[in-house]
Design a protein around this nucleic acid. Structure first.
Lengths: 345, 345
DNA sequence: CATCCGTGTGGTTACGTTTCCACAACATTC
DNA sequence: GAATGTTGTGGAAACGTAACCACACGGATG
């Protein structure tokens, strides 16, 4: 590989055209593959471009074409495994389609979300995939004619979305516990208007209703996002409502709950059962392994990217589509028959 | 919030200038904050820009200024927790400095790495952060005058880098095992020319040497990247070399080793001890929790981004800097005294 | 033989911004 | 009162590409 020595002025189409004895127009057609070019001239231009190490200037292309190959992605927290998984899935599909991904984290903060979205606007991204936290960001994008796909949660009815069937997940987890004889089942959720938590709660209530178990508000903990005292709240729930099982509605709450149970010396599942939502590596590895509602994280990301590509191709006229992926209850050792008496706490 | 209804042609500087009764030049100076503008005119322009919902066209800016605010990041595998952590750290720092991150995964494949780097070239990224897999990508960037920061491993001497002290990590892990009486210590590493694995191996050998324990090649497994039969290789090592302890040089190998030991019904640490490298959540949660060399993942990312920003500010003349972060041995329950006899396998 | 068409090429313009330069108005200095 | 400086503004060119249009050529068609 010989590299031209420090060509600090990057090679342009004009350079190639000059070198090959054609016009810049022809060079453009040859290298972009649009429009008439004779085979001989095309080959000559390609050879020259290769020799000079030509790399097209994406900004010029974007400026001229009024759109870029960059898809914006904004997720809540880049360091959470679940969101990292979404990003990984999105990136896979986008790369196959020759798009780039620029990713930002809002910290579940609507203002940061809007700021992020503005930079995507500035980049003339044709589309954005987001785990929405406020409604304003999406409407800003849509008012500018930019495709939006919501992932994991729904906030904006008028855009595409990919979610999992949270209600079903919540219902199956709860029914599994009920089937084991549990009557006092705690629900650990996040205090948001997100459809994820609402859906899981709804599934929980549906399951209770079906089993004719009265809903007890004290068994439900709604924990604020980024709350510093999650463990204390779980402890309080344990003390005040003495559940025989816990259904933790996301992977972080499951981890916290697991730690609290451990620290209290409660035996799982003899004293108390635990079900998580969103299968992550540790859940299968701990003793006993955790029963969990598995959601296909990477697949969620892939589906969102697929939906976005479809939207970019078909235009804004096709009606919004919502893809619903199915979660899967994976029964492991952390759930067992309800103890005869509520455990000491 | 009132949003202008479907202004499908985005508003430009010229629009604002016309509306405010100035020239585009003045509008540019007012909004970019460079050059003379009287206070009254500036305020008028800012007001108009705000009212029309002006968002600068990043492509036009990049084209004109011949550089963008986009930093390229290429890591080996976006779905590996370690790399996701790096990305999270990088993003934090870049965002504070008002840069965007576009991230790509090569699959530890030099060709994909080069392809990725070419898109960064096309975007006129001022700098790129990468976990290098081949040398060509970095040299391509450097020949074009683009700042490169290597993270986690070193391949290109002439660029900045952030690494952790792998040798020390390897040495401390090994010495810890030796201190517990182990003599037959297996090393599970990846078969790469990367400085990470080389450093950890070197530390391992240094520790053995210091303790006057002869180095036995059969105790070292060099497993190819993306190998499908990792577990089989670990089994083979166990069978043929009957170690009393395993030092797994990264989080994935540690997980595989743990599974194999589990499956064989070996007691940890009674029959065999296990040390990992890179602390991830499950390691502390399993029973017994895993002794591990912890590396500050997020911090690694933050440092790399910091180094890049410094480079962008200072220019190419300051000599390359390599920042070395220190790992930390976290002793947990998976390491204990060496058994009197090598365990049944 | 004039016309038309398909093929191939080059000139020109536009995308939206920044920046250099010229210049105008006015204040300051010798 | 002329030269100089400060402050503020507008005109124009440039960044690199894509796409429209005009046009030229050779062959087929009427």
């Amino acid at each position: 590989m010989s590299v031209e020595p420090l060509p600090h002025r990057p090679v342009t189409l004009a350079d190639i055209a000059r070198e090959a004895g054609t016009s810049a127009s022809t060079a453009s057609r040859a290298l972009s593959g649009r429009g008439y070019v004779s085979d001989t001239v095309r080959e000559r231009l390609l050879a020259v471009a290769d020799r000079l190490g030509y790399v097209p200037n994406a900004s010029a292309q974007t400026l001229k074409q009024r759109t870029s190959r960059v898809v914006g992605v904004v997720v809540s927290a880049l360091d959470n495994q679940f969101y990292a998984g979404l990003a990984a899935g999105i990136e896979q599909v986008l790369r196959e389609a020759n798009y780039q991904m620029v990713i930002l984290g809002d910290n579940s903060d609507p203002d940061e979300e809007i700021a992020g979205v503005r930079t995507f606007l500035a980049m003339r991204a044709p589309g954005v995939i987001m785990t929405p936290v406020g409604t304003e960001a999406a409407s800003l994008l849509q008012s500018r004619g930019i495709a939006v796909v919501e992932i994991d949660r729904r906030l904006t009815p008028a855009c595409d979305g990919v979610v999992i069937d949270n209600e079903r997940g919540g219902r199956e987890a709860t029914m599994h516990l009920i089937g084991l004889g549990h009557r006092r089942i705690a629900l650990l959720g996040v205090d948001t208007p997100w459809t994820t938590d609402a859906g899981r709660l709804k599934g929980y209530r549906t399951a209770l209703k079906t089993a004719r178990i009265p809903f007890d508000r004290r068994l439900v903990a709604s924990i604020p996002v980024r709350s510093p005292d999650v463990e204390a709240r779980i402890e309080a729930l344990l003390d005040s409502a003495s559940p025989t099982a816990i259904f933790a509605a996301n992977n972080e709450l499951a981890e916290q709950a697991w730690r609290v149970l451990r620290r209290r010396g409660l035996r799982i599942p003899a004293d108390i059962s635990l079900v998580g939502f969103d299968d992550v590596a540790w859940m299968e590895m701990v003793d006993p392994p955790i029963t969990v509602v598995d959601q296909p994280t990477i697949e969620l990301g892939r589906a969102a990217a697929g939906l976005l590509l479809r939207r970019l191709e078909k235009g804004p006229l096709v009606p919004p589509a919502v893809e619903m992926l199915q979660p899967r209850l994976v029964v492991r050792g952390s759930t067992g028959p309800a103890p005869k008496r509520s455990p000491r706490s």
